[in-house]
């Protein structure tokens, strides 16, 4: 509207000024829109570039022996089997330990401590842990479990990963429980149910899809964590399913292989990177679609 030279301002000079002003404002708007579009394009280009790089280099290096052979010295056709298995074991155990704790904390925040000072402190601390550098979790577990118990171990890696998954589960559990209308709680109380039954049988059940989303996102996060494992499960080039020994994991193997001067190790690192990224992205997409259907 500001651009049309509608003769509201009767003097000719003013109409011309208004038109010029209008053109300037319209130009600023167009520039801002273009820049915004460019910014979005830049963001998408990065994602596409990462994915294309991973697919090209990862698929080039992918073959059956990646899944059937364990890590070997350079030049002897090794694979990543022990690293994959090690990662699966540690992530699975960490999820089993961290998820119940996270759910209890989330339940505490939503059902017991709404608005209480103690609850606010717990919520604050949990949110800090959610974004705290994961390398510090590794150092903490090193001080707590590795030094006193004489050495790097799979258990220490599991402990570090479970500490990382807890705040993720806390956040989604609390958010999902907060969405449940209080009338539902009142109805259950009205039937004479104790509070814990109300929470477990009604609240948790109606929040299931949201809670599972949180768990999936948590798994996706810890599956790619590298830094905390450096000081805890350390990595291991041999076959090892003994959790009290140093344990191999996919991220650690990728880290040491990608930084090595050997071409076949670097290729294995790309194959591993593709595997991890695919798993993480699929978990994320699965979690999102689950949440969308659930609510």
């Amino acid at each position: 509207m500001s651009t049309t030279t509608h003769p509201v301002l009767s003097p000719v000079k003013d109409a011309a000024t208004a038109a010029r002003l209008g053109r300037g404002r319209k130009r600023a708007d167009r520039v801002a829109r273009l820049l915004s579009l460019a910014a979005t394009g830049i963001g998408l280009i990065f994602l596409v570039s990462i994915l294309v790089t991973l697919f090209v280099k990862g698929f080039g290096a992918m073959n059956l022996s990646v899944f059937t052979e364990i890590t070997r010295p350079p030049g002897s056709n090794g694979g990543l089997l022990n690293a994959i298995i090690g990662s699966l074991i540690q992530v699975a155990l960490a999820t089993m330990i961290g998820t119940p704790i996270g759910m209890l904390v989330g339940t505490f925040l939503a059902e017991y401590a709404r608005g209480s000072a103690f609850g606010n402190v717990v919520r604050f601390v949990s949110d800090i842990l959610l974004s705290a550098p994961s390398i510090l979790i590794g150092l903490f577990v090193y001080q707590l479990l590795v030094l006193p118990f004489g050495g790097f171990s799979g258990w220490a890696g599991v402990a570090a990963l479970s500490i990382i998954i807890v705040p993720i589960v806390v956040r989604t559990t609390e958010d999902m429980l907060n969405l449940i209308p209080n009338t539902l709680r009142e109805a259950v109380f009205g039937l004479g149910s104790p509070k814990w039954k109300m929470i477990v049988l009604v609240c948790w059940r109606s929040a299931t899809s949201g809670i599972i989303t949180g768990i999936l996102l948590g798994i996706a996060r810890i599956a790619g964590e590298t830094a905390p494992l450096l000081f805890t499960s350390l990595g291991n080039n041999a076959w090892s399913t003994n959790l009290s020994q140093p344990m191999p994991s996919l991220p650690i193997t990728i880290y040491s292989y990608a930084g090595s001067p050997f071409q076949d190790w670097i290729e294995l690192a790309w194959a591993g990177a593709l595997l991890i990224t695919l798993a993480v992205l699929l978990l994320n997409i699965l979690a999102r679609s689950l949440l969308r259907r659930g609510t």
Binding site: G43, L47, T226, A269, A273, T277, V280, L281
Partner: peptide, 16 residues
């Protein structure tokens, strides 16, 4: 898509 950028593990960014 932009949020998925946040899901890519740190080590992948390192290699890339």
């Amino acid at each position: 898509a932009v949020e998925l950028l946040a899901a890519v593990p740190s080590i992948i960014y390192g290699m890339w």
